[in-house]
């Protein structure tokens, strides 16, 4: 049993790792092996997708427990679960289900989603064109004229044509996506501006020679990225002898292209050695903690 539990997984790691290396170096004369270079990474994508069920279960259980035990902040767990189930259900239903989607025929009536997918209007299908890649371009006409009595005709893709119920589901999903997901995502990203300011304050307190160098290069690069840098450079041209060499933008470019680039190369070389060495250790079973214990 120890063989099955310990040695067999090590062998699987070893064999699959070697296959990937051999596939990488094999030429077109070995098409089957060569194709594994693309097939195996696709397979691990699929495998990792299955674990999402474990993740979802973990999220649900964790929050249900909080609610059941009425732990501090259990109300927020309800919000989280409502958001999760709401989005998961809407996302699952509003996606394409080829088997159940109604066939789009000429002269039939559909709801056409706007480009931002937040509104929909009733349209008639005027004509259907098939593109070279097998896709369809549908010409539709608004069923109800607008305020001025105009009837719009436009070309849309099939994913924007929905049944009345599905269009409502899609709009609801889009409201959650744009209103909550996208807004929160952009705001969290924007918060970085404040954090960069506080981190700069901390980094620029010169405590050592090294911190001074960090501050100096950060200052030059920041200055070189804004118009103020050009103004400072112009001021310095008044200095005798060295003034003309003190162009902030040129100095910034030089710092990025030479000393900074040298350090980045060394970091990457070191990191890649670490990558390869760690990978070799895993393939040869030297590092095996990811497989867990004996049980």
């Amino acid at each position: 049993m120890l063989f099955v539990k310990r040695t067999l997984p090590l062998l699987i790691t070893f064999v699959s790792g070697i296959i990937m290396i051999v596939a990488f170096f094999s030429g077109p004369a070995l098409p089957r092996i060569k194709s594994l270079e693309e097939i195996f990474p696709q397979w691990i994508q699929i495998i990792m997708t299955f674990t999402m069920i474990l993740g979802a279960f973990s999220l649900i259980r964790f929050n249900f427990q909080k609610i059941a035990r009425k732990q501090n902040g259990w109300g927020y767990s309800i919000v989280l679960l409502v958001g999760f189930f709401g989005m998961a259900t809407l996302g699952m239903v509003s996606g394409s289900w080829a088997k159940f989607d109604p066939e789009i025929k000429e002269n039939s009536t559909f709801m056409c989603l706007a480009e931002n997918k937040l509104t929909a209007v009733e349209v008639n299908i005027k004509s259907i064109e098939t593109t070279k890649d097998g896709g369809k371009i549908i010409t539709v006409e608004n069923k109800i004229p607008d305020k001025d009595g105009n009837v719009f005709t436009r070309k849309v893709s099939t994913d924007r044509l929905k049944t009345p119920i599905m269009s409502k589901i899609s709009i609801l999903q889009q409201v959650l996506f744009e209103g909550v997901f996208k807004s929160a995502q952009s705001t969290m990203f924007a918060l970085l501006a404040f954090f960069v300011a506080s981190a700069s304050f901390r980094a620029f307190r010169i405590k050592s020679k090294e911190a001074g160098l960090l501050m100096f290069s950060a200052f030059i690069v920041m200055l070189g990225n804004v118009p103020l840098g050009n103004m400072v450079s112009k001021l310095w041209t008044w200095l005798p002898f060295i003034g003309k060499y003190l162009d902030i933008v040129v100095i910034k470019e030089w710092i990025i292209s030479y000393p900074s680039s040298a350090a980045q190369s060394a970091i990457l070389i070191g990191a890649m050695l670490g990558y390869i060495s760690s990978s070799l250790k895993i393939i040869f079973g030297v590092e095996r903690s990811h497989l867990g214990g004996e049980g």
């Binding site: 993740g55 989005m87 998961a88 259900t89 909550v180």
Partner: peptide
Amino acid sequence: ESLFVGVSAGYYLSV
């Protein structure tokens, strides 16, 4: 935060 975590997890799972 709770709504964002829930909605984003739901989005990744389904979409």
